[in-house]
Design a protein around this nucleic acid. Sequence first.
DNA 1: ATGGTTGCGAAGCAA
Length: 256
Amino acid sequence: MRIATWNVNSLLARLPRVEEWIEYARPDILCMQETKVSDAAFPAMAFAALGYETANNGDGRWNGVAVASRVGVRDVQRGFGTDADEHGCRLVAATCGDVRVHSVYVPNGRSVDSEFYTAKLAWLEELRAFLARTCDPKAQVVVAGDFNVAPDDRDVWDPAEVSGSTHVTEPERAALRAVEEWGLVDAFRQLYPQDGLYSWWDYRAGNFHKHKGMRIDLLLLTQPLAERCRYALIDRNARKGTQPSDHAPVFVDIES
DNA sequence: ATGGTTGCGAAGCAA
């Protein structure tokens, strides 16, 4: 089973690239973030034509997350079901085949001295609490998406250059670790320990070509899935060419 | 180099 995550940075603007990628990568499940599309305007027909059922959580302009699956979409949940996530559109969960899948878009945080940074830490804690009350770490659970946190210095092009700014601060990394400590494994990192492997590059200043990126798009798997994961890839080719997202898709392959 | 680019939507904000 191939499970992928991709911050598409507007699904409607990116639809040709997403369709192209699905056709050659053929994921069984694709989690998307920053769909920036309302549920009513979601291009479900385009996915259906490729054999995918979908679930979106979006109110139109900002954020928005979705799941596309060719192994079924059942028991869709939008948001945490608490006041904390209302209007955020940063979580959608669905059961696809025998896997409980969560597509998440963690708040960016903007700057460390802002209220948005505090809200980012709180959101990650809410995610941890949500998983603890709704899922079993012994079951087959995936939490995939744009975490807006680089887990450690290997995941950043130059730790000194970005030291003290969002995505790399210790409180953010600790909040991510707390989510993982519920019972999740960073599947890509489990397989590949080296640095220099990134999933996002700022559009500006030619950062992609300078290899100035971060690995912030993660597939977190419970142990029953992680122990059957033999291959993972960040598809850098999808960051090239005409009108790319600023993120590359990432996928893992799970042996049956 | 407080720059640079993209998306949305029609100016400025968010990333």
